[in-house]
Write a protein that binds this DNA or RNA. Structure first.
Lengths: 202, 202, 202, 202
DNA sequence: AATGAATGAGGGTTCATTCAT
DNA sequence: GATGAATGAACCCTCATTCAT
């Protein structure tokens, strides 16, 4: 027949499927997405999905893995550890928010979806931990004389959490990536005391 | 008969059901929770759930409503707007984290679960907005001479996001509520520059 | 309390319930009617229905019995066996169609509903048989010299069937009871040969 | 693995399912038939029913459509409009009753069942109307000099109604198709006056 | 006499998953 | 290599029916 049956190398097929899966998962969420829908979006048959990924969960996991890796790689590539700390922080925050801004549908929602099922807490937590470690490292390396009890990791947790929240606003178009980055940097660098007005609270 | 099957007034049963539903939903998530499981947990029959709440979605919505209201009420009740700003901030952060700490299973996971289904984004978003407004108000009222472009709401978004991230750590037992509160307060009040060591980054 | 609990003599209650049941059954059909709906219509509680009628089926049966009896009684009362046959036939047909016309919602639909479940075939069939016997008797008594093979009962079956079909038209307002009666009488009395034109088919 | 589970082309399965559905629906009625029962009768799994027909209602509708079409086709094919009117009438009545006689379980009960749910009144009414139009056309074309007020359609309604009633007797085995046809033809052609005895009523 | 509270049982529907071709 | 055909297993929901008051 003319239409459907194309022979594609494995790698291409895999990406094609992941693209479709990410797309549909990000729109409908894990549970509300059917394998039929993904197969339809990928323009292949369902058994192919199972042949390549084994199960819906594994497919979703593969989506998470790819997107998280892409995200980490992207952000890593945008920062230069030789920069002075403040620039480093700015670069990282900007890279983070820019990535979110440019990959709304895929990453942000997928990230959200993943947290919904205990089954993927592992993957997401790991991804988030990697980011937190990255940020924690930034903080540690940027601090000349750290106090003995300074919990850089927990600070990184807060930073990343704030980043995610701001990112959610960015991803919905309710905030501008650049402005939000500036705000975050100021906020974290100088704290509430160092609000833009330079006057600070009492 | 032992003691299970009692005639209870409507109000009591309602709470009993909500308690069970919150418990199970928080552990398994919305989609992975069956009405059977909730009924079993509440030690009642399934039709009762439907008689009182109409559908699984409505039941989940009722859970959300109750927990969010409780949370907001609790935090609100713990802060005193007449305190000086720094104390105010401390009170709020502490109240927030304490609440999470004491209602791990229920609130935190339920909060997370709710974001998984597009259908409840509304409710959760509203709840979160109420909190953000609360925090935004704190900031506004605590700042003597705000700069003209100070975006208190976006700052509140960041703070709440950071709080949620820290809260997640608290809720999993990976952080102590009091210590985490202290860290957050310092972080936000003085920024990274004013890290506990008082020495700050380069 | 003020409102609900009224003491009514048994007979009154029974009729009140049957009225409600007939009303709802006739609108929604047997299977699509819930006992709740009937109780609500009758403004009593469900246990009362069960106390008086035992089950949904028995209640429906009671409805059928009452309506069928009323119908037969009504038609019987309108015809006078001393009239000449043609007048007798006219009276019967008219009484039949008039009754339908005046009890559309109740009888016609209930009659229809009843045929839907094997369980009530009995009651309905019996009722219909009584009518058919009545009509068959009319025919028999009206025929001076019946042929040996004349199957008056089967003729009555046909008459009643035609009557029901016409009645359905009457009950939906698509036919006028008087005109329809005239047509039926002519049709049956003279057959197609004796159509109104008096000319008849080839 | 005896021989049940075969891969069958779509068209074959469709008929197989309809056959089973007609069979079970006709015996138990719409509401009292479960999809499980139909699936069991068709020796397939329930999801197949849903894959092919979407819902119980649609499946029932498909049954109705097929059976009504078959019926109309069959009766139409058995009559020849070039015959003289009386023969035409006889052919039609015979074809009608023969069809019923040969398709008792399926058609007659299905026809009856369909009237039980408001949802299928439409389909059945349409089918009946088609038949009535057919008969009305027969009458019209068979009458040389119709009177101005002759309501052939209403006469057709009566004829079809009588036919259905007779058919019910035939379908239960309480009447012979041929004898019943003869009776109907005589009755309609000559009316009660022209009863078999040729003597007629007073 | 009357009812609010409660449930056992079952039906329609969907989906992830797997054969057989 | 690729797929149309098929299903087991659950899940949501409803309803006739019955206690306990």
């Amino acid at each position: 027949m003319a239409g459907g049956t194309k022979r594609l190398p494995r790698a291409v097929r895999e990406q094609q499927m992941l693209d479709a899966a990410v797309q549909i998962f990000s729109v409908n969420g894990f549970h509300e997405t059917s394998m039929d829908a993904i197969a339809a979006e990928a323009q292949i048959s369902k058994p192919m999905l199972y042949l390549y990924y084994g199960s819906k969960e594994e497919l979703f996991g593969a989506c998470l893995d790819r997107e998280l890796r892409r995200f980490v790689d992207e952000v890593r590539s945008k920062i230069d550890f030789d920069e002075p700390p403040k620039e480093l922080l700015r670069s990282a925050v900007l890279a983070f928010l820019k990535y979110i801004d440019e990959h709304r549908a895929s990453w942000m929602v997928l990230y959200t979806q993943a947290t919904s099922s205990q089954r993927f807490a592992h993957t997401v937590r790991e991804g988030r931990e990697r980011i937190i470690e990255l940020v924690g490292g930034l903080l540690r390396s940027g601090t000349r004389h750290p106090g003995p009890g300074t919990d850089f990791d927990m600070m990184a947790v807060a930073l990343v959490g704030a980043g995610e929240a701001i990112a959610a606003r960015v991803s919905t178009g309710d905030a501008d990536a650049d402005e939000a980055a500036e705000l975050m940097i100021n906020l974290f660098w100088r704290g509430l005391k160092g609000a833009p007005s330079e006057s600070g609270p009492a």
